[in-house]
């Protein structure tokens, strides 16, 4: 049985412009110890999906319009407030895109990190401090004793992200949700953080939902990957299968639009995906990608394509999946 199963999840927002279907019938599962990537462009619903799992969205304007999230035999959308609070941090924890926003600027790193052990683990101050130092060492923070006395603003972006990872892993959760953990970092620091996450997965067995807009990060890290477009999963596959052969024209478009470091540099043009993402309050009738799709046929405008399984575990939501 998978560690986490998201099944037909719908998270909508009531906005002045109408109903925004930010996450609209999304299904995916996460196996124990697996790195599961979710990739897609800005606004496609990656953060809303992850915040839905931990029930961290403000309601209203958000509301749950359908589906289940199964974790350890429970539906996370149905458990009590106190139970979800216990699950957060103990069993599932999250790190955010902007590490500054998740650390409290007025407390030292030491205060915030030992607090996690004291609240969640109920250990005394000395033992919390010892565990905090151990954890900072594990995530590669040099001179951890000294860092405990520092404030978040005194750390570089890369160090802050390491501290965030230390806090998130303090209680050895089974699942870590990492929302664009390296987007704000320089590429050399990104490489360090990605290495760290890979090592921690090996040594602690933590499963990771890795949210990113960067196909390079997916190629570097993921076991399996789901590509999202406008609130839905467009394609889902084992990572090698996806990079070997895309089934959905959106994924193919994304892959060709990236100015790559490999292969011959075509002095010619990058492949564009014309147009822009649809407005979530005013989605096209049939396939959401149809207005930008080079393969679209009349039928695509009539009926929304369901997510269907093709070779092995490779799934796509496209009436012309696999057509070149």
């Amino acid at each position: 049985m998978p560690l986490l199963e998201v099944d037909g999840l719908r998270t909508y927002f009531r906005t002045p412009a109408g109903l925004a279907k930010a996450v609209d019938d999304v299904s995916l599962d996460v196996e124990e110890g697996e790195i599961r990537a979710i990739v897609g462009e800005s606004g496609c619903g990656k953060s809303v999906l992850s915040l839905s799992i931990l029930r961290l969205l403000p309601q209203p304007p958000a509301f749950h319009a359908g589906g289940e999230i199964r974790f350890g035999g429970r539906d996370l959308l149905k458990v009590s407030q106190s139970e979800i609070r216990h699950i957060r941090g103990n069993e599932i924890s999250m790190i955010f895109q902007e590490p500054m926003s998740a650390l409290n600027p007025v407390f030292t790193i030491g205060h915030q990190l030992t607090e996690v052990y004291r609240v969640h683990r109920g250990v005394d101050a000395r033992s919390a401090r010892r565990q905090a130092v151990e954890m900072l060492t594990l995530v590669g923070v040099p001179a951890p004793e000294a860092r405990l006395r520092e404030y978040p603003f005194q750390l570089s972006g890369g160090m802050r992200q390491r501290v965030m990872i230390a806090m998130a892993l303090a209680c050895r959760p089974k699942l870590l949700i990492a929302d664009e953990p390296t987007t704000a970092l320089d590429v050399t620091i990104q490489a360090q953080i990605l290495d760290l996450m890979r090592d921690l997965r090996e040594s602690l067995g933590t499963a990771i939902i890795l949210i990113t807009h960067d196909l390079g990060v997916v190629a570097e890290m993921a076991d399996r990957v789901s590509v999202m477009y406008a609130g839905r999963v467009a394609e889902s596959a084992e990572v090698e299968a996806l990079f070997d052969r895309t089934l959905h024209p959106y994924t193919r478009g994304l892959m060709h639009a990236v100015p790559s470091m490999a292969g011959d540099r075509a002095q010619s043009r990058l492949t564009e995906i014309g147009g822009v993402v649809p407005n979530l309050t005013d989605l096209p009738e049939g396939c959401r990608f149809e207005p930008r799709c080079p393969l679209a046929v009349a039928y695509c405008r009539k009926k929304e394509p369901p997510l269907e399984t093709y070779e092995g575990a490779h799934m796509a939501a496209c009436w012309r999946a696999g057509d070149a």
Partner: peptide, 24 residues
Amino acid sequence: GLVSAVPVTHPRLRHRREGLRGEV
């Protein structure tokens, strides 16, 4: 260091990199 830190373009090209240690 900068060039080698760029993520790979295909999962089969993954490798352990020496990478740049330390910070700016």
